[in-house]
Design a binder for these strands. Structure first.
Lengths: 115, 115
DNA sequence: GACTTAGTCAAGCAGATGCTTTATCAAGCT
DNA sequence: AGCTTGATAAAGCATCTGCTTGACTAAGTC
């Protein structure tokens, strides 16, 4: 049974992860919630830029923002990462299967020659 | 021990996978080698465009092109996919650990109240 | 040698992306 | 009410991307 994830979602997800700053933010959030300001602090770029990066992560479902007083705490939505992993795993598995079949085939040929 | 993959490589890899046509090509190649022309056939776009897509996949190490007569057979280099998977898995694992710790903590609190 | 096949190279263009700056808003502080 | 803090909104700009077309090359066919 295949887990079919729609293409647009994968587009957005991989595109989101294609930026170092955003991968950094995801890694940071995997250690726990953080506000936009906290996430922005380590970077040379403006708070607005980081807020935009978080927007990208939010739009593809990897991160969600809530409110607490004036701050906007962000947290990871890891089931979204699942979609990306499963696509990659599926392709890799298909390739591995193919290599296995090929090797098995070659092994049978080899056996044939030796007999 | 961490498998540290350099950021530029991950940038290129996720960017490569952020395109539906390129993911299609990877999926197709996971079923076996194919020439540029064979890969291009299903698409409305020009052969040149597909060749450029393959170039992107090649530059990030996911695909390699060889030569056979006038054709350029392409094949998947699946150990490259490993880098992407391991980055994602690592972040997800960190998040899962954190959730587990949190739940364990809450469980202990709960126990405390009931005693 | 001329023609076809399979593909690359290169220039150009419309639209997306990553940042900036300025302006604005909502919550808390005095 | 006015000021500060934490953040979003919007406009602008340089660069990158995905595609196109036209020109070229290498290998095989007539």
């Amino acid at each position: 049974m295949e887990v079919t994830v729609d293409d647009e979602r994968l587009d957005a997800m991989f595109a989101a992860l294609a930026d170092r700053t955003r991968r950094d933010i995801v890694a940071r959030l995997s250690e726990g919630e953080a506000t936009v300001g906290e996430l922005a602090a380590p970077y040379a770029m403006s708070l607005q830029a980081v807020s935009q990066h978080i927007g990208v992560l939010e739009r593809c479902g990897l991160v969600s923002r809530s409110r607490h007083r004036q701050t906007r705490p962000c947290r990871l939505e890891p089931q979204a990462l699942e979609a990306a992993v499963s696509w990659i795993e599926e392709s890799r598995r298909a390739w591995a299967d193919r290599v296995d079949r090929l090797e098995a085939h070659l092994a049978r040929l080899q056996e044939g020659y030796q007999r």
